[in-house]
């Protein structure tokens, strides 16, 4: 064991006395006195020595520990005192300008909100604890429909109360509560009964848009979505619209973005398809309109839904989906 007490104590004395914040002091306390700290490491190292040497060194380390503890305590008092009575600093700390940060999911939502707001859309919201009626039946997914397999549901009270599996449940409320014509868009958190790993989560974010008016067609829908993709990815990104079944729309369509990793050649990211699925859309099914007491002969509408998480992860270079709602997301201080 190579431990020169006086020299080490002198080094830490200097460090501790220069600390001005409780947080930094806490960090040094953990580093020195914590379970895996410097002093415990010293204790573990003397275990291999002979009993007489062990006693001698142990005494020395204990003394050192006592002195460090005292030093930290006294510095804690000073820090507390100076925090309660702020004094003029001798030297100003020069650092970057301070401003807080919005969460990347908020930033993506706001960016899309802004676009839809410019197209005359309102922003809408709805409950996260949902009923079977609003999450499924009003969206043309009756009980025992195979489409329910797509969405593993987390129940609060089976079968009627659940955590919404899709932001389309907000569409059910929108259609039921508002009189057409209307245009609304809404980000929403959704829940699926899936295990959590680097690329899957049981809590994620959707973005949904709904329009109900007199003459709405697939051309309006495809044009609007193309505008959104252009805004978010630039004008040159190939987008594909293809026929796809969703119970709540008819005709329905799937939206794919050309894989930005392989540019359509096929790779592991796009599972060889060359395209990445971004969401679904379509003309609102007449049964959905009827269930909301909207006459499908008079009114037509379109609806679309997109996943926000992967979009946000790609944009902000986040590799692990758990980071979005976990503690590892942090914001670098702004540069001068």
């Amino acid at each position: 064991m190579n431990f020169a007490k006086e020299k080490t104590l002198k080094k830490y004395r200097k460090i501790i006395r220069n600390i001005r914040t409780a947080e930094e002091l806490e960090n040094i306390r953990v580093d020195l006195l914590g379970r895996k700290g410097f002093i415990n490491k010293l204790f573990s190292e003397i275990n291999q020595l002979s009993p007489s040497k062990k006693k001698q060194k142990g005494k020395k380390i204990n003394k050192f520990k006592g002195e460090i503890t005292e030093l930290i305590k006294s510095q804690q008092k000073k820090v507390k005192k100076s925090a309660s009575k702020p004094k003029e600093r001798k030297t100003k700390i020069y650092r970057q300008q301070k401003i807080g940060h919005l969460h990347p999911i908020t930033l993506t939502s706001q960016e899309i909100n802004k676009l839809f707001h410019s197209l005359g859309f309102s922003i809408y919201t709805g409950p996260e604890i949902e009923t079977d009626e609003y999450c499924f039946r009003r969206l043309n997914v009756p009980l025992n429909h195979p489409a329910r397999d797509l969405q593993d549901t987390i129940y609060i009270q089976k079968p009627n109360f659940l955590l919404r599996t899709q932001a389309s449940s907000i569409e059910s409320h929108l259609l039921a509560n508002e009189k057409p014509p209307f245009k609304a868009a809404f980000p929403g958190r959704v829940y699926r009964n899936e295990s959590v790993n680097k690329s899957n989560h049981f809590i994620f974010h959707n973005y949904q848009g709904v329009v109900v008016d007199r003459h709405i067609s697939l051309k309006d829908l495809i044009g609007t979505l193309s505008l959104l993709f252009k805004k978010l990815y630039g004008p040159g990104v190939p987008v594909r619209y293809r026929c796809k079944y969703y119970p709540e729309v008819e005709p329905g369509l799937g939206l794919d973005l050309q894989c930005f990793n392989c540019h359509g050649k096929g790779c592991s990211l796009c599972k060889g398809a060359g395209w990445i699925e971004m969401g679904g859309a379509g003309i609102i099914h007449p049964k959905v309109m009827k269930m909301a007491n909207i006459d499908p002969q008079q009114w037509h509408g379109f609806a679309f839904g997109l996943g926000l998480d992967r979009w946000t992860m790609a944009k902000y270079n986040i590799n692990d989906i758990r980071t979005l709602l976990g503690g590892n997301l942090a914001y670098k201080p702004n540069q001068p």
């Binding site: 197209l119 508002e178 209307f182 495809i222 609007t224």
Partner: peptide
Amino acid sequence: TDQPISNKILPDIT
């Protein structure tokens, strides 16, 4: 793909 819905203003229901 270049004809989005018109930006006609409808009542704000936000």
